[in-house]
Every structure is written in C-alpha cells, then in structure tokens.
Design a protein around this nucleic acid. Structure first.
Length: 405
DNA sequence: GACTCACCTTT
DNA sequence: AAGGTGAGT
C-alpha cells in the first residue's frame, strides 16, 4: 500500500520551488481555517487535495518541496513513482515542535530532481499560493501603517491567502456557521469521502476530490448530509448547489465572479441559501480575488475592539449588517487594498492552536518586540485616532474605485 | 434599516 | 456559548 511521502526519505520523488519562510509558512497558511483540506501527515509535511490531485508539501528554509501521487483517474504523467519505503525516518528528533523539527533535520540542496516538463504542477502551486504576491513587501507596508500588526508580524510570518476553487470554498464556508475549525474539517472530510471522486489511498487514508456541483445538487444529498452530522446546513448545501445549477449557469457563473467587482460578487453570492455577509466575504477573499475584503465575524469584532479600540458597533449586541460594514471599512482603511490578507495574519495569531508560538520567542524576536513597543508607545494612539476620523470619507472613495474596477 | 430568536451540534 | 443565517418584528 502507498504511503505518505517524506522528504527525509530522499528528494528523488520531490520537486521544488524557491520560496522562503517569510513568503510562506505552510503550518500557518494551511492550518488557519481558510482551507479545511490539509492535514499534517508527517513532521512539517502537509497532505491535501488541490487541483484534482493529491499533494504532500513541506518546506526547508528557502525551498518549498512538493510531491504528487498518481491516481487511477488522472492521466498519469510519468512523475515520481519511486516512493521508497526504506528510509522512513520518523521524526529523528522525536519532538513535537514542527517548524523547528524541519529546520533542524533537513539541510538538502534546493534542487528540483524530477523534471516537470509542462511546469503544470509548478503553475498550480504558484496559482494556489499566489506566489507572485510579495508578502514580505506587504508585511512592511502593514507594519508601517499599524503598530499592532508590526508586533504580531515577527512571529506570524508567511501567512498567505490561498486562491481556492470557488465552489470548494463556497460549500466549505456554508459549513462554518456556528462552528469551529476542527469540526468543520471533519465535516468537509466526510462530505468529500461520501460524495467526491476517490483519488488515492495513503496509509489507510483515502483522499477524494471535492464533490461536483451535480453530486451536491442531488435530492438525496440533504438526508445524506444530515446523517453525517451537518444539521441544518445539509439543506443549505444541497439547495445552493441546485440553485447554482438551475438559475445560474453552473461553474461558469461562480468562476465569472472573479472578474466582477466586489460588491456585485458579494450580492450575487448572498442570493444563495446559507450565504450571509460573513460567508460571502470569505468566498470573495479566498477564491474570487477580492484581496481587500475583511470578513467580519464575532472574533474579528473582538479583535477590533480589543486591539484597536475600534468604536464600531460599540452599543450593539449583535453583528448587524451595519457593524459588518463599519468593522470591514475600518480595517480596509488601515491596511489598504490587501486588507483581507492582513486580517488573516491577525486572525491566525489569535487562534488557540497557535498561541504556543508566542510563548517561547527567540532572542532575536524579543529584541524586535522591544523595539516595536517603544515605537508603539510613542505614536500608537495618535495614529489610530487619526485613522478613525478619516475612515468614512476614505471608505466612500475606496468603494467607488472598486465599483469601477 | 436594525434587532431578536430559532436552528444543529459539540465543548 | 459558539468564527452564522434567515425569518419575523
């Protein structure tokens, strides 16, 4: 039986791409709840389905390594079939610290061993991780505009927005209401395993493609998903799929929203059952190229109040449309055209599972933080106040520009 | 336009 | 009580 690939078993079955940790951190980017399809299958090794194939990804300091698996259904290109089970070096350090472990145990030369004639896989990765967007430059800009961001940025580097398939993103996020990441992951996994095309099996785990629109739209789907523990979301999924297929022209409609202006795309998505402001914004940001969108949930609202003394919705009990708008505008303003990307960094830094990264900062990080603190105390409040004052005016301008986009 | 509550399931 | 939506007031 096939096994999950491990870089420590040798680089023969792997290809690589130059990519530093400051541009991409797999653990944060794949684990922060934007995609629910990736699992850590080995120390620092992430396995998931993307672009209709199964991938394992891992990284060393300046290199992103990738391995894809053959599946019966895919017309196999002669890619690395040699997954030697011989040297299964299982965590030679035996530590649970993943990023550290990888750094220590892997010093291979960043050489692409197996050729990828079409560069098809390289293209897929470049597109999925949007590697042409220079994250380091954006972090600098956000840090300039926002002292609090700067204090987080030293630890949470390389948090990047994925460019996901719109359908997968939409149906995954319909599952997110009243829900948390670990349970959503389980639901999406069950969704794929019961309705998606099987791709391959590795170490007792079977990997499936995300279900097609047709599979999701079938009348039997609601009952099926209720059995799988989807609750009231079961109906939303089936009905949304049905509606996209019937009243819209299927996949083309979803894909087409990539070139539509933000507000238009968001309104279009909101006609679907189970899609409110939060889900629509997530789909816009994570699959429809709307980098400026800041999806607002109760969590982001807390961050706005706690870390930015943002007054938006202060007298409110619940997250109304108005509060959504105000918080979104506030952050769009602070961070600019890639505000949605910046938001995901803060969001990530606030997740319980990543809190341990803050506990043992390296000496270098501590020094950086001291510097930041001094700066923040000097100019922080004044700057925030100023931003808030000019918020309304600038936002109108911003939206206008966007509508023309 | 803005607010409340029921809806599922798990912690 | 939760990382939300939709129907009703």
């Amino acid at each position: 039986m096939s096994q999950h690939a491990l870089l420590s078993a040798g680089t023969k079955a792997w290809r690589s791409l130059a990519c530093s940790r400051s541009e991409l951190r797999l653990d944060l980017t794949l684990g922060c709840g934007q995609s629910f399809r990736w699992r850590e299958t080995g120390d620092g090794h992430w396995t998931g389905v993307m672009g209709g194939r199964v991938w394992t990804l891992t990284q060393t300091d300046d290199t992103l390594w990738y391995h894809t698996y053959n599946s019966p259904n895919t017309t196999a290109e002669g890619d690395g079939r040699k997954r030697k089970a011989g040297a299964l070096l299982q965590g030679s350090k035996g530590s649970g610290k993943r990023s550290k472990g990888v750094k220590e145990q892997e010093d291979e030369e960043p050489v692409a061993v197996t050729p990828d004639p079409d560069r098809k896989e390289e293209d897929l990765l470049n597109d999925y991780f949007q590697l042409k967007v220079k994250l380091g430059d954006l972090y600098s800009e956000w840090g300039e505009a926002d002292p609090h961001f700067k204090s987080i940025a030293n630890i949470f580097t390389g948090v990047r927005m994925l460019r996901q398939d719109p359908a997968e993103c939409l149906f995954s996020f319909i599952c997110t209401s009243n829900n948390h990441i670990s349970r959503i992951q389980g639901m999406v996994e069950r969704l794929c395993q019961s309705l998606g095309t099987p791709l391959c099996q590795l170490d007792q785990t079977s990997y499936h493609d995300f279900p097609s629109l047709h599979a999701l739209a079938d009348n039997s789907v609601e009952a099926c998903l209720r059995d799988l523990g989807f609750g009231y979301r079961a109906r939303f999924l089936q009905q949304s799929a049905r509606q996209i297929l019937d009243s819209h022209s299927g996949h083309q409609w979803l894909q087409g929203l990539r070139s539509a202006p933000y507000l238009q795309a968001r309104d279009a998505l909101r006609t679907l059952p189970g899609v409110g402001p939060k889900v629509a914004d997530c789909v816009c940001l994570m699959s429809l190229d709307k980098a400026c969108v800041v999806p607002v949930d109760t969590h982001v609202w807390q961050i706005a109040k706690r870390d930015y003394s943002c007054a938006a919705g202060n007298g409110q009990k619940s997250l109304t449309d108005k509060v959504h708008r105000e918080i979104g505008d506030f952050f769009r303003h602070l961070w600019g055209p890639y505000a949605g990307w910046a938001h995901s960094v803060l969001f990530c830094a606030d997740l319980k599972k990543f809190q341990k990264l803050k506990e043992t900062p390296s000496l270098k990080q501590e020094e950086e933080e001291k510097k930041v603190k001094i700066k923040v105390e000097g100019e922080g409040m004044g700057r925030n106040k100023k931003i808030r004052k000019t918020c309304d005016r600038k936002v109108k301008k911003y939206v206008k520009e966007e509508e023309v986009e």
